[in-house]
Simulated scan of single mutants.
Amino acid sequence: MSHTAHIPSHRKPRRSASKLALRAGVAGGVLGTIAVAGAAGPANAEPVTETIEMPTLGSLDVGTNLASAVAASAETSQQEALDQSLQSLEQKALEKAAKDAKKAKAEADRKAEAERAEKARLKAEKERQEAEEAAERASRSEERTQLSTTSSSGSSGSSDDGGSSSSDGGSSASDSGSRTQAPSGSAASIVDFARAQVGDSYVTGGTGPNSWDCSGLVQAAYRAAGIDLPRISYQQSSMGSSVSLGDLQPGDILYWGSRSGSYHVAIYVGGGKYVGAQNSSTGVVERSLDWDPPSGAVRIL
């Protein structure tokens, strides 16, 4: 009986895919037949052959697929890096836009607050001026009422044979200008200076040259004639001697209130008119005595 010798299979360690593909490519398409003769059998023993069929591998396809995979991986990595860069740029743009919007809002709020403050200031200034004018009108009305009461009580005690007609001593203030001559000398200087300031603005404490208060204008007009007067209205009305409103002359100082406590003064310019720095609404004006009759007058010239 013949003995068939079997050749044991000796397997080497598994190689990497790339090396295997290379080897398979070299041997691709080749069908190898390995014949192994048993050396241990008798001489007349039939040789035993073992046929191994090697598979055919396409080395070109494997290499192409591997290169495609590597390229695809590289492209994916580049895309991810690009996406991250775009996300970073978008985040920075959003942060900058938010910062700019916050700054713009703060600036808008500041401007709005400044506008509100300015409106409030103008409103308060207007209310203050209106209050001053109302107080001035009320004070003058009270003074006129007191003067009227005093005049009525004084005239009630006159006798029939000693009384005089109203044409003798009771002429109105506006009539006094018809009996006065044109000013001359110092009076003319005072009147001319006062009239030259008509249209200037009224400012509390103003002493010129383009803005005045009542006593500042009177002081400057008399200074133009070389005469120094005190600065305050009640001090100016306390100077010189008292004169009747029916006997006024150009250059006389008119006052409102009491002589020692006047709150407003002006200059009589003749023709039943006066020039004075009235208030912040009217400024320096020339008005008829009937528009706001004064309480009294003093003469310094």
Rank of each mutant, 00 (worst) to 15 (best):
G261N: 11
S152F: 04
R259H: 12
D247H: 02
G283H: 03
L254C: 09
R259V: 11
D200G: 07
A196G: 12
A135I: 05
G205H: 02
S164G: 11
A188I: 04
E143W: 00
E132L: 07
A117H: 05
T204A: 15
A24P: 00
S73G: 13
A17I: 09
S178A: 14
A81N: 12
V70D: 15
V48S: 10
L94C: 11
G206K: 00
E80M: 08
S139W: 00
A124E: 14
G296A: 12
H3C: 11
S85K: 04
Q78A: 15
F193L: 09
A173D: 09
G25D: 14
D168H: 02
S166A: 12
I190F: 01
A221L: 09
L66T: 10
E80G: 12
I34D: 11
V191D: 06
M239D: 14
S260Y: 03
V218N: 03
D252L: 03
V191P: 00
E125F: 02
S258D: 14
E113R: 03
S152W: 01
T149A: 15
K111I: 08
K273I: 08
G246W: 01
R121F: 13
P294V: 03
R144L: 12
E46F: 03
Q236E: 15
L147W: 00
S88P: 04
L245Y: 01
P294N: 11
V269Q: 00
K12H: 11
A101P: 01
D252H: 01
I7L: 14
T180A: 14
A124L: 11
S155L: 09
P42W: 04
Y274A: 12
L82W: 02
A120Q: 07
G283L: 09
R231Q: 10
S184L: 06
M54D: 13
G199K: 01
A81G: 14
D200T: 05
A220C: 13
T76E: 14
L31V: 04
I300V: 11
Q236N: 14
A224K: 00
A221P: 01
I190W: 00
S152M: 05
E53N: 04
E136T: 03
L289D: 07
A43H: 03
T76D: 15
E75A: 15
